[in-house]
């Protein structure tokens, strides 16, 4: 019995204690600007995020799960994250993911990355290594990462807009085929050269993340 299928559920569970609950994935800034105001606009926001930041993150996770050098991937992640605020967020969440991963699926590779990046590596890389340590495949890691990229904003929108939670969850269900597709593309990209990993980004997410980081009053850390 490998337990791999259930291990993926544990890793992708929104209750996995790795700090995600305090982050909105840009949804708080989008809600404030009036761009996300109901289930339909949440769906559009999540779709945009999935195919840009989501694809880039999923490919990094898949590459880490496939055994690529995590430090080289960490540099690749920096190169793909122009916003200093989002770099800080990615490393903060990576550190929190590292703590949870070392308690749940400890392995020497996680130890080595924690020693090399005590203040945190980019979160998708730690997630990918955690998946590897749990006996999961690069495709599993990409799925977990892609799903998290849209489930975070959806949960945040429920809190920010008092959105009907059934509607928000239906948004995620409708996006499932696209999330599968993004995960598949991420794995294909991770099989090639590191320099060719996807570098898709959403400039508005980068810009609003910088502004959000300066807000004196906010519900979410990012």
């Amino acid at each position: 019995m490998s337990g791999a299928a259930a291990a993926l559920l544990v890793l992708a569970d929104g209750r996995f204690p790795a700090g995600g609950h305090a982050h909105s994935g840009g949804a708080e800034a989008a809600v404030k600007a009036g761009r996300v105001k109901d289930a339909a606009s949440l769906g559009a926001f999540c779709r945009g995020r999935l195919h840009t930041a989501g694809l880039t993150a999923a490919a990094l996770a898949a590459a880490a799960a496939a055994g690529h050098d995590p430090l080289a991937l960490d540099e690749a992640a920096d190169a793909r994250t122009p916003s200093p605020a989002l770099r800080r967020t990615a490393r903060k969440l990576g550190r929190q993911m590292m703590r949870a991963a070392r308690a749940t699926w400890p392995c020497p590779e996680l130890d080595a990355l924690a020693a090399a990046r005590p203040r945190g590596a980019h979160q998708p890389i730690v997630l990918g290594l955690a998946a590897r340590s749990a006996g999961l495949t690069p495709l599993d890691a990409a799925h977990a990462c892609a799903y998290e990229n849209i489930s975070g904003p959806a949960t945040a929108a429920v809190r920010l807009l008092s959105l009907d939670p059934f509607d928000a969850t239906a948004v995620l269900a409708r996006l499932a085929p696209e999330a599968d597709d993004v995960a598949r593309r991420a794995v294909e990209a991770a099989e090639g050269d590191l320099a060719d990993l996807p570098a898709a980004s959403a400039p508005l997410l980068d810009i609003t993340a910088e502004a959000h980081a300066t807000w004196p009053v906010r519900l979410f850390a990012s």
């Binding site: 700090g19 995600g20 609950h21 305090a22 903060k92 929190q96 945040a156």
Partner: peptide, 20 residues
């Protein structure tokens, strides 16, 4: 520590940010 609208989560269910 910022708690993402859920102060009890940060001290009970997911303590990672507080431990850091």
């Amino acid at each position: 520590v910022e708690t993402g609208a859920c102060p009890h989560t940060a001290i009970r269910d997911d303590i990672s940010a507080n431990l850091e």
